[in-house]
Design a binder for these strands. Structure first.
Lengths: 240, 240
DNA sequence: TTTGAAAATTGATACGGTCCAATTTTTTGA
DNA sequence: TCAAAAAATTGGACCGTATCAATTTTCAAA
């Protein structure tokens, strides 16, 4: 995990900050840290940059590096991993038992939109996979995914009733590492209401986007309609 | 703008990628770029890292750096600035005329929650600012903000009917550069429906969080209830 | 022809250094 | 005493180098 030098320092600084070892809210300067840790200044800078990008510290040239006071005061607010929390994480979050019910598993020709988004040809086909996701047997999300046959020709209803991402990673040694997501709110449709147990007044959160493989290949076009109480997306936003 | 070396290279590579100067989708290796641009490898790496973090290229150790084919094919999908698009941006986006109607401007004692979030003392007071935001005279968002008096003691109803962020930047030379936001969907309340012109079936998008000043001081606790058609949040998510 | 080890390629991490720019502290001189 | 100038502090940008690790290519042995 922390085999990298800058990550080791990162973790250590994080721990020291949390243990309030810098009561003046000011970290030692970079050159001092360099000699304290016995590493080069670039490694220190790298660690500090990550801390800064996570909002844990902020730097001021000519002045020093300081602990974000809010980080100490109200740590629970800062419980994201990187700068974004993914879908899987947010579903995994609270230790509930996840379940999947396959609603539809079929093959259809790629629409125009899929062709551009998934980088396909006219004649290509895609799997259409509609699944209902449960947490502790409670339906929370309707997921409609489109995956090019070319990428995973051996997909089956059985595979699809588990985690497709895990299958890819275990059996084909391909990892899904990135996605472009668009997040919005919408009134619930009749179908939403039936499947997710919503009243007509209750909305769904919609997250739609593309998942990419390690090598940049677009892998899945996904549309997720979540029970509104289960969608909470946290982000660290930089205004530029 | 592009006075920094690595930024110049960044822009240039971006341009070359867009002009399809790398038809094999493969960029020259880092050492070649180093000599081509006549800069150090660290600058090249820095530029490439930004490109990679924006999803424009992806790197593979031992293999090379490649253009994300989707970036060329479907450029419109990638029209975000950094890795996240902020509120202001999304409201500014489509060239409509923004308007603000002040609903409430008062001073109240800080609640327990504000004390922790905004790093305040027991006896501190905050401005409570409720504003209705319009685009082309169409109401799109109800914004409730809490700002510590200590930070901006001279705030007035007049100032508040414009952009508070711009006021801070122009008059007090303080910039708001970061925020932690939580995004969710909720059924609309009676008030939402009246102010935003929604039916009871139509929801609101809720973005709530904290805005920070340049120096890390938490500046505003904000709760934004958006007409659901106006909330669209785009994010590049890294799954780890 | 095929397989598998060796070599070359290529990005990743880390070092240590120079110079610069923003800020704070100290000193100087009216 | 105090304001302006000088010096010290501190983070930022960039350079060039060494070593490592993942991947691809090459080439020899079976």
């Amino acid at each position: 995990m922390a085999d990298l030098l800058y990550k080791t320092i990162l973790k250590d600084l994080e721990k020291r900050i949390f243990n309030n070892e810098f009561p003046a809210k000011k970290l030692p300067d970079e050159r001092t840290l360099t000699s304290q840790y016995g590493v080069s200044r670039s490694s220190i800078k790298r660690a500090l940059n990550v801390l800064a990008s996570e909002g844990i510290v902020f730097k001021k040239r000519g002045s020093g590096t300081f602990v974000n006071p809010l980080y100490l005061k109200n740590r629970s607010l800062f419980n994201y991993e990187g700068s974004n929390l993914g879908v899987t994480d947010s579903l995994r979050a609270d230790g509930k038992k996840p379940g999947i019910k396959v609603l539809d598993f079929s093959v259809i020709p790629a629409t125009k939109e899929m062709q551009t988004d998934l980088f396909l040809q006219e004649e290509d086909f895609v799997y259409q996979i509609r699944r209902l996701r449960l947490l502790d047997d409670q339906p929370v999300m309707i997921e409609t995914g489109y995956i090019p046959i070319r990428i995973a020709p051996e997909l089956s209803r059985t595979i699809v009733s588990g985690s497709i991402f895990n299958y890819l990673e275990d059996k084909k040694n391909q990892t899904v590492t990135k996605s472009f997501l668009s997040i919005e709110a919408q009134p619930s449709t009749k179908e939403d209401q039936e499947l997710l147990g919503l009243t007509p007044q209750e909305p769904v959160g919609v997250m739609s986007g593309i998942f990419f493989l390690d090598d940049g290949t677009p892998f899945e076009l996904s549309n997720m309609r979540l029970h509104y109480q289960y969608m909470k997306y946290n982000a660290l936003v930089e205004l530029k």
